[in-house]
Amino acid sequence: MILNQFKGKVALLVIALCFIVGCNESPTTNSQQVVNDFVKGSYNNILKQNKNQPYLLMFWSQDCAYCMKELELLGSLVKSHPEAKLITVATDPFLDVNFIRNKMASFGLQDTQAWVFAEPHAETLYFEVSPRWRGELPFTILVDGDNQKTKKIGMLSEHVITTWLSKV
């Protein structure tokens, strides 16, 4: 009886240890960046999950040369301000996640939160993010700690980023 109880405790201990090990295998220690599906409701989830904290949400596309320039700029930002939280969303529906990972890594953004449109018709997601957004890219939303949003269609200027950083 005592032996069985002892075995039970040891099993519990083993499970707990596995739990710890499992939890520490978080995405930052995983070599593969998580790429989340951006579907209807995702935008609101991002807003909720990041409530009262500053972050920068950037929408891009593989065919958008300006987006590449902005991603490059954001890569520099992450280096100089590692505390800044960046979230990127690829607007090409179901874009290959390895392509996204490679693209993010090429800009030093492999540790940021990445999403990809996962609805066949991108404009339904444009509408949810902002009814006046017609899909022009890049599109960036800068949110400060008071949940105030600055929406910027077109490439960000350093001045806009600096102003946002001053509130971070």
Partner: peptide, 14 residues
């Protein structure tokens, strides 16, 4: 609360 998202939609099993 990791930088990489963990939400209901995030399981990157695709």
């Amino acid at each position: 609360s990791n930088k990489a998202a963990v939400t209901a939609e995030t399981a990157d099993k695709k």
